Amino acid sequence: MTRIDAKFADLKAKGKKAFVSYVMAGDPDFDKSLEIVRGLPGAGVDIIELGLPFTDPMADGPTIQLAGQRTLDGGMTLKRTLELVTEFRKGDDTTPIVLMGYYNPIYSMGVPTFLTAAKEAGIDGLIIVDLPPEEDTELCLPAQEAGLNFIRLATPTTDDKRLKRVAQNTSGFVYYVSITGITGTAEADASDVSPAVARIREATGLPVIVGFGVNTPEKSRTIAAVADGVVVGSAIVSQIADGKSTAEVLAFVKALADGAHSA
């Protein structure tokens, strides 16, 4: 059982929904990023999604693209991202961390080298946006053999036939992208999300976490009410981009987490 599996089992036992926060590793710099990440569990975050900076982030909107560019300009790399996780784990051995990004940096490091380093650092799962199920032998299957969850995305355009393929080697949870398009560009609607979540649960047997288009405590609550939890990314990254203090960022995160946990 991974930390992700244990977290969902604990939340289910408590009758609570999950709140997942996304931040870009190294944003706005390594030290402040580490400070923010260390504060996320205390702000009510159940699972941390840590963005891996990449030069061509096809699924990300302007907010997250700019965050990635800031960190790349500051010298952030895959190796430094894993170093950040290693530092976090010195004080927290229970909060799950999912690395979210694109395959190129992992391919460049080499899959066996990456998986060894990720496990040693304390990564629990991977969301690799540009690796479809047809490429499972590249990273998905080796990652699962190494003890990491490999988490898939489902979208409003994922039909039943495709969903079966998506579910085949997925573990941990399914990330439901509630809107078509890129991050941070539209709002999720609970009436649209609810039937999609039910369909994905039935097909996979896994928790379904909804992301894209969740940006307020009220929206966090309404979407969590029809899913197993919510992810907030762009709204948090915007706070960091605006130069808010760590305390201000974490207060914003806590309001979002409280919304999800009240569902």
Score class of each variant (00 low, 15 high):
Y102F: 11
M109Y: 14
E87N: 06
G75M: 05
P105I: 01
D189P: 00
E87W: 06
F114Q: 09
D189K: 15
D124T: 05
Y175R: 07
P142L: 14
F173I: 06
F114R: 02
L78G: 04
F54M: 09
T63Y: 01
G75V: 08
L78R: 00
P62T: 11
D46S: 10
P156C: 06
G51R: 07
T183F: 06
F173G: 09
E187N: 14
P96W: 13
G110C: 03
P112D: 14
G125K: 00
P57S: 12
E138D: 14
T86P: 00
I106N: 04
L66C: 01
L78D: 06
A67S: 13
Q65K: 12
L153C: 08
D73R: 13
G147D: 00
E49Q: 13
R152G: 10
M76Y: 01
G101K: 05
T63I: 11
F88H: 00
T183P: 10
E138I: 15
A121T: 07
T116D: 15
V45S: 04
T116C: 08
A186E: 13
M58F: 13
E138Q: 14
D60M: 07
G44K: 08
D56A: 13
D56C: 05
V85N: 01
L50Y: 05
A59H: 12
S178Y: 06
I97P: 01
L99S: 04
P96A: 14
R89K: 14
G75H: 03
S108N: 14
G75A: 04
R80G: 00
I48H: 07
L52K: 07
I182D: 02
D92R: 06
V111M: 11
L52C: 12
I123Q: 10
T158K: 09
G147K: 05
V45P: 02
K90W: 12
F88Y: 15
Q69K: 14
T95E: 09
G110H: 10
L163G: 01
K119N: 11
G101M: 08
Y107T: 03
Q65N: 14
V111Q: 12
G181D: 08
L163Y: 12
G184S: 09
G181S: 13
R80P: 02
D60K: 10
A143L: 14
G101P: 05
Q168K: 15
A143G: 03
D130V: 08
D92H: 13
